[in-house]
Amino acid sequence: MASTVDFRTHVDQSCRYSEEFVNIYYDCMDKKRRNLTRLYLDKATLVWNGNAVSGQEALAEFFESLPSSEFQVLTSDCQPVHEQATQGQTTLLVLTCGLVKFEGNKQRYFNQNFLLTAQASPNNDQPVWKIASDCFRFQDWNS
């Protein structure tokens, strides 16, 4: 349980998990888009420039509709989410900012944040992280 681990250890672990996740997520987004929904919980929600997309099927359809991408992450940060908010379920808030070029579009800056929850993994002592929610916006979305 997170509460019995000291906060510093918890923060250190969170940073490592977060960095791993960020690498996997954008690599998948750019190169293995078909596998991307595997990173999401069944009932996950994505809010993309103010549009909500929920559930595996809708997410798959949405990602299919996006042109191919080249993401470049410039900053990332991460916080362990307080357990009172998650009923003890280990959860991380992961935040990124960077540049993205969608094919046929100009390169734009974006901000994105994720809530990741730890899923127990039967044959591994490391948890498997799944996206519970994802919020994406272009920085210049309203210009």
Binding site: G50, D134, R137
Partner: peptide, 18 residues
């Protein structure tokens, strides 16, 4: 201000304000 609600459960409300 623009507000995006990311997640809403009985125990948590997460939103992004820009």
């Amino acid at each position: 201000f623009t507000v995006d609600v990311n997640t809403y459960t009985n125990t948590l409300l997460t939103f992004t304000v820009s």
